[in-house]
Design a protein around this nucleic acid. Structure first.
Lengths: 351, 351
DNA sequence: TAAATTTTCGGAAACGTTTCCGAAAAAAAG
DNA sequence: CTTTTTTTCGGAAACGTTTCCGAAAATTTA
């Protein structure tokens, strides 16, 4: 019986509207509206009276009606390659914190690193009239035509992390060059002589920049670019494993690996351990974009920490600025990180 | 100049509405609406004509206006303890896949394991008029008053994973009892004699059930409940580490640990390794609710895999059923998993 | 005290749909 | 060929807001 009661209650339950409040107080609908958006001319006492009784009556402004009037959805779309990835889930938290506090809702979608999914997501979101878009490109995305079209229409889009240099939009990036340089320099200073960089595919800016940072360090310390070379690998653990195994099989193992990211570094470590090669005694390893994993693996992994939360926050703030002030000239914000040195790269013989 | 052009274009750009389409074809607005919601009486040819020219004109129905008319937000709120956690992010993917395909949008919030955050999230979401709620309780949540009130109003809410037995709502749970039983049984069959269960706090159903599964296995194999006991630990890695260190210090180490979850198991492993105790030769370990980590740690961790995606999918489907058919009697769906046996629990001497 | 100004408010249109109602057109039945 | 039934469509109200416009009330100025 009580269960039946709850059904009827639900069916009968009506949200109290602005009209109900107006009627109750014998004021106009517009006055109630004014009371709730305190930018208009309304006497202080009536405003307070309205707000008070509205609260009593349990009135909440209907966000949908407001959106319809204001021609704004107050929705922001976020597209990332995957949110199981700690880097992205942490970034999303930063994004959400900023946007929700400004009354926006955040719709999150993931491309699973596929271009078609990414495109579909962006289309779904723009069909849903999001007021702006935050995008981190999938690994597959070479074709940026659709983004160019949206940007040309003046649609606010901010890119972060996985960007494409040629897109005329604001971006938030990490200083990959600099920190890859530092990571490599750290290996050099530890006394590792022959260092290979396991790189991601070259069309990704982040992969390219990390590669360049590596090369710059090699150059600065007068080491041979032939001896200390770059191997295009990928971004996945299995790819790091496979390449390392090949190097072992070809007896072409370096003294240390500077890796494009942690998964590749972990893959390399897996191959090394499988072949009973000691880390860091025989081969040192550094990763990039650390996750909580870095502390858990054995040996713990030296890596570059990115300011994930700040990246999200900054991205969201750039977007809000663009939504509110219109599109000025594109702006690229570069953030700094931190090299966390752990066991995988510290030569015990040196200490 | 081109940049200035894009500004004006944006300012000028107007979405084409149903009226524009109607005017263009000299038909009524209602006909166009009928064409797009094919439940109404409309001649086949006119419908096709309308759809065709609507597409030509780039018309997309305005979801906000539709929501206002239909008195539905087509938004679903999801509140989880944290989405950095792989378990939850994978579950969310299952939820999203189902809901998005039915035209719903998913608003995700996290409580960070705090009751006040959880409450605030639920309030924010209901102010935003979500049509339903999917909730996994925070560790702190003892007070369920607010949920009771919402449920009494007939508000559709489905709980998953972190549930509270006393709430009269549909739930999706994992058969923790059964799989904890299997995990413990596996340790027993490997020949481990003295087994401790590192348990979570007792007010969480999942912790309680995993503990009971452990006890049931101990009982079934006629092992002493005093010898093979339960230690209330927590859910975090540090807690597992701390307890294990205490056991080591008190010379009270068992032959194996059955743990409430993977973080606690990893913490125990960390403490064991720090004390040069060999896993699994001296002490075996099994975890629960595996993540990708299980394969990466050394030794790899035996754990119970939960069907995360299916959990999300099932939860979303239950919610949709409730939204569409009204609240019938609460329904509890229990899903099965899989015990993945890895190095941390396999006695080499046995093989 | 009358006129001018400012403050406060109500009426009504608008946002873009869906849906009810009734009428016109077409088809079927007589 | 008329009458009845069915199919197809247009008009208009409604959803719950915001906002423009103008008028009434209150205040200031002369």
């Amino acid at each position: 019986m009580s269960y039946h009661a709850s059904i009827t209650q639900y069916a009968i339950m009506k949200h109290v509207t602005i009209k109900d409040v107006a009627k109750r107080l014998n004021v106009s609908v517009s006055s109630v509206s004014r009371a709730f958006n305190d930018k208009y001319d309304i006497k202080k006492e009536t405003k307070e009276l309205i707000l008070r009784t509205a609260k009593e009556m349990g009135y909440h402004p209907n966000p949908i009606a407001r959106k319809l009037m204001q021609q704004k959805s107050y929705n922001i779309g976020v597209v990332v390659p995957e949110f199981i990835n700690e880097f992205f889930s942490e970034t999303i938290i930063g994004i959400q914190d900023v946007l929700i506090s400004k009354g926006y809702q955040v719709l999150i979608m993931q491309s699973n690193e596929h271009y078609e999914n990414e495109l579909m997501n962006v289309k779904t979101l723009s069909d849903n009239m999001v007021d702006g878009l935050i995008v981190s490109l999938s690994r597959e995305t070479h074709n940026t035509e659709f983004y160019l079209k949206l940007l040309a229409e003046g649609y606010p889009i901010i890119f972060f992390n996985r960007i494409n240099d040629s897109l005329p939009a604001s971006k938030v990036i990490f200083n990959d060059f600099k920190w890859s340089f530092f990571a490599t320099e750290h290996l050099i200073k530890q006394g590792f002589k022959k260092i290979y960089h396991l790189s991601g595919q070259n069309h990704l800016s982040l992969a390219k920049n990390r590669m360049k940072g590596f090369q710059k360090a090699i150059e600065k310390y007068d080491m041979s670019p032939e001896e200390n070379r770059v191997i295009e690998t990928g971004l996945l653990m299995d790819e790091g494993d496979k390449i390392t195994q090949e190097l072992i099989d070809n007896q072409d193992l370096p003294e240390a690996f500077s890796c494009v990211n942690d998964p590749v570094a972990l893959g390399a470590m897996r191959a090394l351990k499988r072949n009973k090669i000691k880390i860091p005694e025989e081969v040192g390893v550094v990763g990039f974009t650390e996750t909580r994993l870095a502390d858990l693996v054995d040996p713990s992994l030296t890596s570059v920490k990115q300011p994930t939360y700040e990246i999200g926050k900054t991205t969201a703030e750039l977007l809000l600025k663009q939504i509110n002030n219109g599109f000025k000239t594109p702006e690229t914000v570069s953030l700094d990180g931190q090299l966390n040195i752990r066991a995988s790269s510290v030569r015990k013989t040196i200490a």
